[in-house]
């Protein structure tokens, strides 16, 4: 088995960051996230051994704000001088299975079913993903219940923490080519991989979609939604939430169009030009979020949009817990 000594991780990242922008799970002040290796000054506090980081790496492939094209108003003509395609090569190093699955969700949303999002596609094509197998699920983790194998992230290469070394496993062709480039830092060693520790929460997700299909008008939504204040914290911290808005900034006759994350929790999200709003109440917006995660996405792509990372459980100011909600949905007997 190929392995990399833990002492060689920093030299590896230093080397990789000469050619690519490398995003590594690190602690920065009171935050943690996938920060660009070169942007980190001073001591770099790598968090590869932590369960995960606070901010998922969704920003790497799907930036919170992204310029699409510039616009210019001439006397007679209206022109688009530039379209912005981000072709920089990127590496996401040490992503956990839940966050990697969220990228698989993005791939399906932005690249399949008849429409390819060129901005995402360009960025994705130039990104290599190195997964970090997860053997010790945390207090709010439930990825296994959402059909994810925590030790086998969707990635080009997967590293497995085995004490003083990481076992190195190339998964895809891209992963094999990448491995060849760093071959000199790897060595052969016989070792056993750790055992996956049990999850504190496990449930059977089967049947939830079918159940939800008959629950749109169920009274349970009122009770579940009541504590929700419709802030967008859960949606912005979620690795797989991917709604965006397209807006414009103009000064005089020049400007640009950009897209930015949006949240189904906001009233403005569904505001229509004519003044109507199909989801006027807090409860309507709350229900939509859970139906999208647990029902609509599965109907379209065959797997749920929730990857069981548990971040929303840790950050919800009012203690709304998606595991609790799934369990409550399962307990609903009568279909209205």
């Amino acid at each position: 088995m190929q392995v990399i000594d833990k002492n060689k991780i920093v030299p590896l990242l230093d080397r990789l960051s000469k050619q690519s922008e490398v995003f590594v799970p690190t602690v920065k002040g009171s935050e943690s996230g996938f920060y660009s290796w070169n942007s980190l000054n001073g001591a770099k506090e790598i968090a590869l051994e932590a369960l995960n980081v606070y901010h998922s790496p969704k920003n790497v492939l799907f930036p919170q704000t992204e310029r699409m094209y510039s616009i210019e108003q001439g006397k007679q003509v209206f022109s688009i001088p530039d379209t912005f395609q981000d072709e920089k090569s990127r590496i996401i190093f040490g992503i956990r299975a839940c966050d990697a699955k969220a990228i698989t969700c993005f791939d399906d949303v932005f690249l399949t079913h008849g429409y390819e999002d060129s901005f995402y596609a360009t960025r994705r094509k130039n990104t290599i993903i190195i997964g970090n197998a997860c053997y010790q699920p945390g207090a709010n983790c439930f990825c296994s219940s959402m059909g994810i194998n925590p030790v086998q992230p969707d990635a080009d290469v997967v590293i497995h923490d085995a004490g003083t070394v990481y076992a190195w496993e190339a998964i895809t062709v891209t992963g094999q080519q990448f491995t060849e480039q760093v071959q000199d830092l790897l060595e052969e060693k016989d070792l056993g991989l750790p055992q996956l520790k049990p999850f504190s929460t496990e449930f059977d997700y089967d049947g939830v979609v079918e159940k939800l299909q008959g629950m749109f008008d169920h009274e349970i939504w009122h009770e579940l939604a009541e504590p929700c204040m419709n802030c967008g914290t859960c949606t912005y911290m979620c690795p797989s939430c991917h709604c965006f808005d397209i807006q414009v900034k103009i000064w005089g006759d020049k400007g640009y169009r950009f897209r930015c994350w949006d949240s189904c929790m906001y009233t403005e999200y569904t505001a229509e030009a004519g003044g109507g709003n199909p989801r006027p109440d807090s409860q309507d917006r709350f229900r939509n979020r859970f139906l999208h995660k647990l029902e609509f996405f599965t109907e379209r792509y065959d797997y749920p949009l929730c990857t069981g990372c548990g971040r929303c459980i840790s950050v919800c100011p009012n203690g709304i817990n998606i595991i609790d909600i799934i369990k409550r949905i399962k307990e609903v007997d009568k279909i209205v």
């Binding site: 602690v27 369960l51 980081v53 606070y54 945390g138 709010n140 971040r311 459980i313």
Partner: peptide
Amino acid sequence: DPLKIAKNQSGLACP
């Protein structure tokens, strides 16, 4: 503050 405890117990890397 339950949020602080939730964050501490989440296992997510943070002080």
